[in-house]
Computed example of a mutant assay.
Amino acid sequence: MTDLIAGIRVPDSAMARAATQLVRDTEDDLLYNHSRRVFFWGALTGERKGLKYDSELLYIGAMFHDMGLTEAHSSPDLRFEVDGANAARNFLRSYGVPQQDIDDVWAAIALHTTPGIPEHMRPTIALVTAGVEMDVLGIAYHDFSHEQRDHVCAHHPREANFKESIIDHFANGIIKKPLTTLGNVKADVLALKDMNYVRQNFCSIILGSAWPV
């Protein structure tokens, strides 16, 4: 695997190749292509900002960031982000990766739907979220050239109905554990897709707690 897309080379280590195969075998085409695009947007952001980042760690973070949406890696009661982070941690441990690098990839995945925090952290963490935000929300869309956007999407296409489909994927991955959406953006997904969903309210939880005052 020596892909060079938009000037970014995909890591070609045994670990990176194994990660690609694992994700390819686990996720459908939409999530796989989305995850690959997240890597390229993250790497291009790092290049643009002059950040010193580890391409292989960024790749693992990008490729595993939505694994928690899949049945194979979904737990009954943890946030899907944590499920994906745990899957990546187990994978990295099997390759003897240093603990700080594992921690960075874990945090990158666990925090990728928590805006306003990852951008202030180490590059692996910041750039996974930057890649996700570009691909899903279009944040910093115009900071990428037409050529960069076209080249990445030529190799890893966005489906014609990607916007609706990615929301459906989010909903399908979390609909059985709605309590995991408290305080994160996935509450909006269930509010749109699940007519029985009741959004939790932070202030109501405070006021209804066991504390007498």
Rank of each mutant, 00 (worst) to 15 (best):
I175H: 11
A140C: 12
L137D: 07
R158G: 02
H155Q: 10
A140D: 15
N161T: 15
R158E: 06
E133R: 15
A154Y: 01
H151N: 12
G138F: 14
R149F: 11
H156S: 08
G173S: 08
M134K: 14
E147H: 03
A140Q: 14
I166L: 06
I175S: 08
S145W: 09
I174Y: 09
H146M: 09
K176F: 05
G131E: 02
S145F: 09
A140W: 11
A160Y: 08
D135F: 00
R149S: 12
K163S: 15
M134W: 03
A160R: 13
H155K: 11
H146K: 11
Q148S: 02
N172Q: 11
H156N: 05
G173R: 06
A160I: 15
H142W: 12
A171S: 14
A130G: 05
V152R: 01
E164G: 04
I174A: 07
D150C: 00
F170L: 10
E159D: 12
L137K: 12
E133Q: 13
G173T: 08
A140P: 06
L137W: 14
T129N: 07
L137V: 09
F170I: 05
E159G: 10
G131F: 05
S165V: 04
G131N: 01
V128D: 02
A154T: 01
H155Y: 09
I167D: 01
N172I: 07
V132Y: 07
N172E: 14
V152T: 00
N161P: 05
K177M: 02
D168T: 08
A154M: 02
K176W: 04
M134I: 07
S165W: 02
H155D: 02
K163W: 12
P157A: 04
E147W: 03
E133N: 11
D168H: 10
Y141R: 15
K177P: 00
C153S: 13
D135Q: 02
H155N: 14
D143H: 04
E164P: 00
V136F: 15
V136Y: 12
V152W: 00
A160M: 10
D150T: 06
A160P: 03
F144Q: 05
N161L: 10
V128Q: 03
H155W: 05
A171H: 10
K163Y: 13
F144A: 04
C153F: 08
I175C: 09
G138A: 05
H151E: 14
Q148E: 12
A130F: 07
F144M: 04
E159S: 13
R158L: 10
N161R: 12
H155M: 06
H156W: 15
I166Q: 05
E147Q: 06
L127W: 04
I166P: 04
A130Q: 08
Y141H: 13
F162L: 08
T129D: 09
K176S: 13
Q148N: 00
A171K: 05
F170K: 02
I139P: 07
L137P: 00
H146Q: 11
H169F: 05
E164C: 01
D135P: 00
I175K: 13
I167E: 01
K163M: 13
K163T: 15
S145I: 06
H155L: 07
H142G: 07
Y141S: 14
P157S: 06
S145M: 11
D168Y: 03
D150A: 14
D168A: 09
H156R: 11
K163I: 13
I174V: 14
V128Y: 01
T129S: 12
A140L: 13
